[in-house]
Simulated scan of single mutants.
Amino acid sequence: MPALSVAIITHNEEANLARTLRSLPEGCEVVVVDSGSTDGTLTVASQYGARVIEQPWLGFAVQKNLALSECTGDWVLSLDADEELSPALRDEIVSLVQGQPLPGKPEAYFVPRKNFFLGRWIRFGGFYPDAKLRLFRKGVASFEPRPVHEVIRFDGASGKLQGALLHHAYPTLSGYLEHMNRYSTLGAEILQQKGKTSASAFDFIAHVFLAPAATFVWNYVFRSGFRDGREGLLLHLYHASYTSWKYAKAWEKAR
C-alpha cells in the first residue's frame, strides 16, 4: 500500500496535466478520473504511470469523491489538473506522510495556494494565501455534494503546511471569462433552488449592482488589489462581476 495517493479529475487537460504530474513525489499512486477527454489527456496520464478511470461527468463533487474512493494510500492529496506542487510543498508532504502517526497529530492539512492570472502571481486583494484543505488521511474527508465551488468536509482538528500549491488557473483572459460564465450559471441554479432570485426591485439592484461594486472596492482598494498591476485590475473587475452575473441569471431563470 502506498503512503500517498494523488486524486485528480480531468477533461481535456493535456496542456496542464504533465506539469502537475511532474511535480509529484516519486513513488506515489496517481488516480485520474477522466470525463471524456478528446485531446491527449489520457496519453499524458499513462506516460506518467497514472491509473486512469473513465467516467462520464457526474458533477464536480461526485467526480472528485469517486477519485478519492479509488485511492489506496494511507494519505490522499486532492489536486486539480491546473495545480502544481512547489518543491517545498512536495518535500513537506513526503516528510509528513512517511512519518510515524502520533497521538493528537492532525489527520488533514490546509495548504497555501498561489493563484496565477495571465501568468502573474496575484498576491493581494484576498487571493493569497488562499488556503485549501487538500491533504488528509484516507477515509476521513470528502467533498460536499454541491454543484459548484466544491469544498472538502472534515470534522477533526486540522494542520497547516508551509509550502505553496501553484494554481495556473487562468493563463488567458478568454479562458477566465468562459470559466466565470460557466460557474455563474451553476451558481444561479443554486440561488434558484434556495429561492434567492432577486424578485424585488431593491434586491435586484443590491445583488446585480451594489454588491459587485462594493466587492470590487473592498478587494481592489482596501485589500490592496491595485498592487498587482493591470492583471490585478482585470481580475478584481471581472471577479466582482461574477456575483452580478450569478444573480442576474437566477432572476432571468425565475421570470
Rank of each mutant, 00 (worst) to 15 (best):
T197F: 08
F154W: 09
G40E: 01
T20G: 04
N219G: 00
G125E: 02
K138A: 15
K196L: 11
S37F: 03
R227V: 13
G36W: 05
F222K: 12
R227L: 13
L177K: 12
G49Y: 13
F226I: 10
Q98V: 10
A254C: 09
A211Y: 07
S69Y: 13
H149N: 12
Q162W: 01
E92Q: 15
D82M: 02
L66Q: 13
L24G: 04
H167M: 09
A214E: 01
A45V: 06
F124R: 10
L4M: 08
F124C: 11
A157R: 09
R19F: 04
Y176L: 13
R51W: 01
P25G: 12
E29D: 15
E84C: 08
W57K: 03
Y176H: 10
Y128W: 12
F127G: 00
F216G: 01
E83N: 06
K194A: 07
F154L: 00
K114V: 03
F143P: 14
P147H: 09
G232S: 06
A3L: 09
R182T: 13
Q193K: 01
L79G: 07
E144V: 09
R153K: 02
L21G: 01
S78C: 13
W251I: 02
T41Y: 00
A250G: 06
Y170T: 10
F116E: 02
Y183T: 15
A240N: 02
L133G: 09
Y183L: 13
L233S: 07
D155N: 14
L235K: 00
V217Y: 11
P25C: 11
W57F: 10
S35F: 11
V76S: 06
E54V: 14
E13S: 03
L42A: 06
F226P: 00
F209Q: 10
V148C: 08
W218H: 13
L24I: 07
L96G: 08
T185S: 11
S200T: 14
I8V: 13
L118M: 11
S95Y: 08
M1W: 11
D130N: 15
N219C: 12
H179F: 11
R90E: 03
S241K: 02
W218P: 05
A45F: 00
N65T: 06
E252M: 15
A108L: 05
C71S: 11
I53N: 14
A157C: 04
G119D: 03
I190A: 05
R22E: 14
E178S: 14
F117E: 05
R51L: 09
A50T: 06
P2F: 14
L177C: 08
L4R: 03
F116I: 07
H236T: 03
L135C: 03
E13N: 11
V151G: 12
R137Y: 04
I9K: 08
L186A: 12
Y48T: 08
L234E: 10
M180L: 12
S35C: 09
D39G: 05
R182I: 11
K249W: 06
P212Y: 01
V62G: 01
L133H: 10
L210I: 11
N219D: 04
S142P: 06
P171F: 01
L173H: 05
A131V: 09
A169Y: 00
R255H: 12
R255W: 08
S95L: 07
V208Y: 10
I9D: 03
Q55V: 13
A141F: 07
S23H: 04
T72S: 14
R146W: 15
V97Y: 02
V31W: 00
I190T: 05
T72C: 11
V44W: 02
Y238T: 05
